[in-house]
Structures are given as C-alpha cells and as structure tokens.
Design a binder for these strands. Sequence first.
DNA 1: CGAGTTATTGTCTCACCATCGAAAACCTCC
DNA 2: GGAGGTTTTCGATGGTGAGACAATAACTCG
Lengths: 251, 251
Amino acid sequence: MPDTTPELRSGQRHDISHEVLGVVFQVRDGALQVLLWRRAQAPEAGCWSLPVGPVGVAESLEAAVSRHLATKVDVRDLAHLEQLGTWSEVHRVPSRRLVATAYLGLVPTTSDPDTPRDTDWHLADSLPATAFDHGAVVTHALARLRAKLSYTNIGFALAPEEFTMAALNRLYCAALGRPVSVTNLQRVLLRRGVLEATGRLAAPGTAGGRPAARYRFRHHELEVTDAFPVLRPRRTSSRGAEDPPGAESVD
Amino acid sequence: MPDTTPELRSGQRHDISHEVLGVVFQVRDGALQVLLWRRAQAPEAGCWSLPVGPVGVAESLEAAVSRHLATKVDVRDLAHLEQLGTWSEVHRVPSRRLVATAYLGLVPTTSDPDTPRDTDWHLADSLPATAFDHGAVVTHALARLRAKLSYTNIGFALAPEEFTMAALNRLYCAALGRPVSVTNLQRVLLRRGVLEATGRLAAPGTAGGRPAARYRFRHHELEVTDAFPVLRPRRTSSRGAEDPPGAESVD
DNA sequence: CGAGTTATTGTCTCACCATCGAAAACCTCC
DNA sequence: GGAGGTTTTCGATGGTGAGACAATAACTCG
C-alpha cells in the first residue's frame, strides 16, 4: 500500500495521532437532532464537524470524550455513552495521520444544555455539509440508535424521568423518523418490563379528555431484550421474576 | 476545541501507540476455536495472547490487521473481517500507553492454514490463561459472533462452499455451543433466502440412509435479516424476490 | 347530563417459529 | 427381492408475540 503524501513519509516513530468524536443526539422540537460545531479554521472551514478532541496520555478514550463533551454539553446531561467504532482511513483528514474513535451520546429531552458559540443542533435526517468523514459517522450512529430503540431499553436516555404514553410516542416517532403506533408501543414496552406505571396521573389537558397515566423506564442502564428468537430453544413459559441470564450487549 | 492542542504535557507529544488485535475463529474438530499466540517475552511470558501488531503510518487499521494475520493465517482464508471495538484502558498493558482495536475474523472449516510455531488453536469456550485484556476481547467477539449467527448470514464465513444440512447443523451447534434443531435451521435459513439448494446430492454414507441434498449460502457478504420486528410496520406480504432495502449492518 | 376529546384495553388476525411425526430415499442383510 | 434400519426432508399442528382496529374508560366544557 504505497503512499505518496510527504507528511506520511517522515521517519519518526509515533506518527499516528488519536482523537475522539462525540455524536450527541437529543430530541428537540419534535425531531432528532445532533450537536455540530462550525469549523472556523481550515481545513474545511465553514463546514460543520462533530465535537472532537485529542486523547490525553493518562486517560481512556471514554474519559477523553467525556472530558471534551463537558465543554459542549454538561456531562450530567449525558444519560448514555457508548463506543461506536474507530475510523482510520489514511486520508480521512488531510495532511495528518489521525485515527478517530467515535462515541454515541444521548441527552434526555428534559435538559437544555447551553452550548458554546459555534455549536448548534441540526436535524439528524438532513445534515448540512459536514467535514471529513463525519457525515458517515453520524449515519452510523443514527443506524445504531434506531436499531437499539427496537430491541433495548435505550429510550431511557432520551426520555424524561416520567412521561405519558403520548409523550413517549412522540419521542419514538421523532427518534425513529417514522410513525409508531401508540397502542403497540405501550403494550410491547410494558410486556417486556421496560416500562412501569408510576401510579401518578398527568394533569388533564385544556381540551379535556381522560388524564394520562405516567410511566417511567424501569432501569436506567442499557438492557438488551431477549435476542432474536431464531434458533433459540423456546423460552420455558415462566416469564416472571428473574432477568434473562445472557442479556449482555452485542453492540 | 482545536484538535492540535497537546492536552496533557507529560513529556513528548505522541505518547499513545496504536495496535490491532485479531480474534480469528474457526470450527475445528466440532468445536469453535480461536487462534492464540504463546508469548515468549515478558510481560506475561507464557500466557496466551491474541495475534497483535503495530499500525503502519500509511495503512488503515483494516489493512494493518490483514497484514499481521497474513503471517498467522493465510489471508485468503479469512472469509470475513469486521471491527469489534477499541480498548483503551490506561493500564491495559504495563509500562506503555497502548490502545488496541480488535477485529473479528472468520475462517471456513475447509481451510487448514498452517500456523507458525507458538500459535495454536484453543477452545473458545474454555480459554487458557490470557495476557492483558485479551480474555475480555475474546468474550466480546464470541458474543458478537453468536448473536450475528441468529440474525445475519454470517455463517457463510464459517461454512464450506457447499454442504449438507446435517453438516451445517453440526457447524451451528459448534459455533453456538448448544444444540440446534436441524428442522428449524433448514426452514428458517431457506425461508429467509440465506441458503439455496444446489441441486446436487451428497454421496450416501456407509450406513445407508437417504442421500442428503447439498446447499450453499446465497451471498457471501454480510447481510442483516430484517431487524427486530418490534415497532415496525407490518411487512407487506410478498416475501419473494427483492432484497430488503434497508439491510445495512448495525454491528 | 350529553357531546367532544383523549387514554387505555380487548379482540382479531397474521407471521413466525418450535415440535412432532410421517414419508422419502438409500443402505445392508437375510 | 423383501425386511428392517438409517438418514433426510416435508407437512401438520400449536403456541407466542405483534400490528390493526374497535370498544371502553375518564375527563372537560357547555
């Protein structure tokens, strides 16, 4: 694999730098949005890029991305953070050899972190011109989020502490980018034990109508719903009590 | 957040090195096995480690892991290679700051790559003492492989070009580490269009019995079966012909 | 109290998968 | 050549979970 770029031919030992990217999603104004930063300097000045930063010698990648995002979004607002993947194409950024590990971060609708100048939220489904390979990274993050909404309880990281079914339905519609049946959403998430009723009721709306019950996510750590049923021995009836033993994440 | 700032000034600028790990699985002797290398030098001399190597300045991580595995397993034998994740704990290896990106590689049963001295296959379900965090990496790889066997066509990378249902069943049992019903395996994989009959028959065994039909995987690139059915609008009947449009991987 | 509005629950149906058993296709041995 | 054994394949049956839709519950307002 010959490479002719002069910058890459230098004979030093440590020529590869490592950076972290944060793909932070939040449902805002009824749509899924992602936090982007307007690049001031070249290269790709004027384009939008993901929050990015170097990795310190004495910190893990998780620590690095948390640290950098703290300057963009209050870390306490990050309800979920998981590794997405590592991008390493040789020319993914010009004139430097830079490997990037991307993380997916989720912020619940309740928090409205004040973002510094030059950062802003953008619709995840129609991105502006993005720098480098950040568009592909966002696409990847979007696909993973949407997949996990179907077979995990990851919604807890986007939703408020307590909510009505109608509100949760709007949240899922926004995050998935397509309509979702309230009826089925409720029954599926309740049967799986992802949601539980709090017993409290929402204040009835001004237009009248039955007051909605309030629900919450039962757990606030990622849990994977019983994996794809194919070729698995049938679950042995008793569906109560104990958590499934092999419920670890598969990314 | 200028991405050229040396954040931690503990001395030199480029203190973090990057390596790649290869988790290579193959079904051998009716069991899933992983290729390990016996460490000769300290640290952790005598322990078994994954195949590992540095990343060149002018190559991507994929290229690096392919290059290193070529010295352990013939690259042509690697039917599938995908990124698993990046491990970055500060003290994951002693006395150096080393970040590792792991890849999952699969070798079909038909090839028997000759491995150099000091490398050997080990049962994936009962590993020997492993060096560093390599045990956790193998566990991760194993979980991903087993999950993907259920909802993708990834079996193509473990199976021969052509095989009988009984043989494929033995393969799946070995890879999953639990019994699988032949009947269901056949029908599920055929209905999904993952397998197709070749029309040829296997030579009948010495004990007699109906000769088995031979099948093959229809495609040899990773394809994800229609994702978790939950909260999706019902598929509109016609299940023939065209591939599902949104069948991209989710890792 | 009835009309209007919203939330929740019941029921129907369909897709999918696991289990079982029968049939098909081959062998060997008598 | 037929009986019996072996292996593969196909069909029938039942259960489970989910989507669609209708019915019911609970409230406000006039």
